[in-house]
Design a binder for these strands. Structure first.
Lengths: 166, 166
DNA sequence: CCGCCTGGGTTGACACATCAACCAGACGCG
DNA sequence: CGCGTCTGGTTGATGTGTCAACCCAGGCGG
């Protein structure tokens, strides 16, 4: 064994960087997620929804808008919203246009107001500050390039939900 | 609304870079994962296990070794291994030492041999090549720094499973 | 010998994601 | 009108991850 992934596809330096990246990613993600979960009882998904709602003008959005800005598939969104409603973080309220609007509740607002600073502080400590301004700027650029590259590629041979929406 | 996450915690440039990174991450991950899943019927998790097994000397490892190298918690690993065994990708075989060894099967070996090149090619196309050698090297360094930083932080106040194992 | 801890591993309950199927209204077109 | 089809949204089945509890053997102090 030991030969399978060693084909000329990725040379040693590339392998190493890629694996460092993967590890960093997982480490950071699990750290942030566990922090949110344990200190505030919110999952990453909850957080994402609440951020979007709280950044909207009125604190209320249609589900498909959330679906657009989070890039979740609609069924995931639907399931998660019903769970969040059960926990009192959001409310689905009827409006004239047949489809319910998703509104953040007092409780949801309180939750995100409480946890956002702590979360941001962690992002700063473990990510932003370690990068430093110049390297961070570079990362931002490369990230956009990668998203664009994948988007371009998918225009031709992928199912619709991956394609760029911005 | 719109004020919650705008506290002085992350300034505009930082926000932007962070969100670009998050988006890139999600996009890349889902793209790679869907590719593996649709072309080869393997999940990212399956792939990770198979890579580890195929890179070992004998194609067989104890579960706790897998747990160390993947950094999964043991229950996740146990669940996933039983599922993989049901699908014929691995086998748990008894050995002298009370605990079973996890062995990759012919089928599992065939699966990873088939998909590894295609996967690596995609990593190259969408990640390695977009970065380019210099920026990629930088990313590798920063990644290691971040992992180290989180590791250091967790030595003092985190549950054991996050702490560095290398 | 006993009690107790620790390490490797499994199990069950539950939260979450994904897929395919479905529903209802709107829109277009013959 | 009748028909297909698109969009916004829900539902159920199934696969996956997480947490806490447990099991069992080995070691160790009494």
């Amino acid at each position: 064994m030991g030969f399978v992934t060693k084909e000329p596809w990725l040379d040693d330096d590339e392998q190493k960087a890629w694996r460092s990246y993967l590890l960093m990613n997982r480490t950071l993600e699990t750290h942030l997620e566990r922090h949110l979960q344990r200190e505030f009882g919110l999952s990453k998904s909850d957080f994402e929804i609440l951020v979007n709602l709280s950044e909207s003008e009125s604190g209320r959005m249609r589900a498909f808008e959330l679906s657009r800005s989070t890039q979740w598939e609609k069924s995931r969104l639907s399931h998660h919203l019903t769970r969040m409603e059960k926990r009192g973080l959001i409310r689905k309220e009827a409006c004239e246009s047949r489809y319910p609007e998703i509104a953040i509740t007092e409780q949801g607002l309180a939750a995100i107001k409480e946890c956002a600073p702590a979360h941001a502080a962690r992002v700063r400590e473990f990510f932003v500050d370690v990068f430093g301004p110049e390297r961070l700027a570079v990362l931002g650029e490369v990230s956009d390039e990668i998203v664009a590259t994948i988007g371009k590629h998918c225009d031709t041979d992928c199912p619709p939900e991956v394609r760029g929406t911005s």
